Computed example of a mutant assay.
Amino acid sequence: MNIQESKLGENFHKTQDMNELTIAEDPKQIIWDMMTSFSERTWSARWASGLEFLLWEKVRSCSDDLTLREIADFNFYAGLAGGWWMWDKVQKSEVFVDLAQWQIIYSDYITATS
C-alpha cells in the first residue's frame, strides 16, 4: 500500500514525508457537518435557531449532551479552521466567521441575553 493512500483516522492522511499529516477534508465543512448533525438529532432541524450559541457553550462547558470525542473534535476543527459557523439573518444562511469575530459576536449575545 502506498503511504499516501494509508488513512489515519477519518480525516487525516500520511504524506510521503512520514512526519507530515495533511487534512483530507475541509475543516470548515467538518464543523458544519457536526453542527447540523447535532441540530438534527436534537431538534430534527438542520439548523435550529441559536444553534451556534448553544453549541459553543456546550463545547466550552464540556456538556453531557456531547461526547468527549465531539467536544475534542469541535475544539480541534474550530481551531484548525480558525472560526465557527453562525446564522446570518441578512443572508438567511449559515456563514463562517473567524474566531476573533465569533468571540465578539458570542460576547455580545451573552451580554444581550443576560
Rank of each mutant, 00 (worst) to 15 (best):
D65N: 12
Q16N: 10
L66R: 03
S37F: 06
K92Q: 12
M34F: 07
F12M: 14
W32C: 12
D65I: 12
S114L: 10
F53Q: 12
D33E: 12
D73Y: 07
L21Q: 00
C62G: 14
L68D: 10
F74V: 02
G82L: 07
L21S: 02
A78Y: 00
Q91N: 11
V97Q: 04
N75K: 15
W102T: 04
A45T: 13
K28H: 07
I104V: 14
A24P: 05
L51T: 05
H13F: 10
F38K: 04
E5G: 08
W43C: 15
F38Y: 08
N11C: 13
I3V: 05
F38C: 07
K14A: 08
L51V: 01
G79F: 00
A78W: 00
I23N: 12
W47I: 03
Q101W: 07
N11P: 04
N75F: 14
S37V: 04
W85V: 04
T42P: 10
Q29P: 00
L8M: 07
V90T: 14
T36C: 07
A24R: 13
F74T: 02
L54R: 02
D98W: 12
I3K: 08
I31H: 01
M35W: 01
M1C: 13
E52T: 02
D98A: 01
R41M: 10
A112Q: 15
D17A: 06
D64H: 14
S93E: 03
S6C: 14
I3F: 08
M18H: 11
F53K: 08
I104K: 13
S49W: 07
F12G: 09
W32P: 00
D64G: 12
T42R: 08
N2H: 11
F76E: 02
E40C: 05
P27Y: 04
E57I: 01
M86V: 09
M1W: 01
S93V: 02
W87E: 04
R60T: 09
T22Y: 01
W32R: 15
E40P: 14
T67E: 03
E94A: 10
G83F: 02
S44E: 01
C62M: 09
W47V: 03
L66V: 06
L66T: 02
A112C: 11
A78T: 09
F53T: 05
Q103G: 01
E40V: 11
D73P: 00
M34V: 04
E57Y: 01
D26Q: 02
F12C: 11
E52R: 02
L21V: 10
I3C: 07
D65F: 05
Y106F: 14
E5Q: 10
I110M: 11
Q103N: 09
S63P: 01
T15W: 09
L99H: 08
T42E: 06
A72K: 13
N11W: 12
S44A: 06
G9E: 06
K89N: 15
E52I: 00
S37P: 09
V59K: 06
L54K: 02
S114K: 11
L68K: 13
E20I: 15
E40K: 12
K58W: 10
D26A: 05
S39W: 10
F38D: 03
G9L: 09
M34H: 10
M35N: 03
S44H: 08
G9F: 13
